[in-house]
Nucleic acid binder design. Sequence first.
DNA 1: CAGAATTGTGTACACCGTCCACAAGCCTAT
DNA 2: ATAGGCTTGTGGACGGTGTACACAATTCTG
Lengths: 215, 215
Amino acid sequence: MKKRTQAAPRARSTYRHGDLRRALLTAGIELARGGGPDAVVLREATRRAGVVPNAAYRHFAGRSALLAAVRAAALSMLAVAMEAELAKLDPRRPPADFARASLRAVGSAYLRFAQTETGLFRTAFSAPEESEITDDPAKAGHTGRNPFQLLSDALDRLMAAGLLPPARRPDAEYLAWSTVHGLAMLFIEGPLNRMPAAQRREIEQRLLKMVEEGL
Amino acid sequence: MKKRTQAAPRARSTYRHGDLRRALLTAGIELARGGGPDAVVLREATRRAGVVPNAAYRHFAGRSALLAAVRAAALSMLAVAMEAELAKLDPRRPPADFARASLRAVGSAYLRFAQTETGLFRTAFSAPEESEITDDPAKAGHTGRNPFQLLSDALDRLMAAGLLPPARRPDAEYLAWSTVHGLAMLFIEGPLNRMPAAQRREIEQRLLKMVEEGL
DNA sequence: CAGAATTGTGTACACCGTCCACAAGCCTAT
DNA sequence: ATAGGCTTGTGGACGGTGTACACAATTCTG
């Protein structure tokens, strides 16, 4: 049995599509949202854009290029989610409080995004050929910072507030990220994917606390 | 110890293959080793077994069934790696030392396996349709315990040695696992995949220490 | 306004997973 | 021992995929 999702291909009158690149990207995002990286299939994207398969090659070098673009978009959405969580905080709170809350906000947003937008999350962190550590603005949120940088900022604040010894600051993002990322993975495609939400929240809290204290 | 069945399909004389299921499984493992779960392709496995594609269906319900078998085998190998690391420890050491070392051994083996057998590791933790928390012995090592259970054992020892407050024992495996799993993922398909080995080791040590103290 | 550049089309190929009908060999009951 | 049946491998086919090549339709530019 096959999935037949026709979102009104809307036959166009003009020969040119007009905005095919964007159309393919949004189609790809939608596919990723529903089924993770493997669901991003070129032909389906072109189908949804109302165009013949090969047309995609005028805008992306191939499937993997499209996937890379979707991945960047997913990372950007994650960054936006983090920024939203950070924006809730009152920056006039005592620096120590604010710093701790910042780190927590980043972690919480990460975990929520993973469980809310599972397909996109999995896509965001699916292995590319060679990991690009680029500063591609396509991966950033509204502030222009990508998820990794937002985490770094939070850690900087923690150090500035005297809660993180400078000696432990280097590479601290890797420790923090590992921890949260691992839990997210166990939740969404590991043995914890049937755990009730309440229990999840509790473990999330314990984990964030462990990071806060153990860094 | 490893056989090179790659280049020589070795046309068989008998009509029956004799041990096709195992041949397909080993071929699948080899494929997974080289390219992760996506590389486990049914037709290629049958090709290596010197058999026509459809023959696979006499032994596996389909590609996903083969993949599941490969996944179980990968988990079993991980368990074996953990057991080997644990076996190096001297059980006559003071219980506290032994407990701490046990947890460390499990974590180290996990991280080493992830970086040494990347393809198999990624396969082991690729999402199945619905996560099976079964006690399938195919996932266990020589002791009959699977990776998750080996971790649990180590934590039990930690608690018995008085190093882990009983109140924090429940669900502690999830915290520990998350942390190590996350680091492994960042190493193999995250932004840390170009990090030099020396730096990796250092971060691993910091992470394991954080878990030990922060649980 | 003609020619060039861009963008979408058509056709084709190789590969994949899987379904169906059939053949080859082994097993067992008569 | 032998006739049937069961298991296992074969052959062919179908629809799906990514992608290469030649070509047509449009827009851009000198």
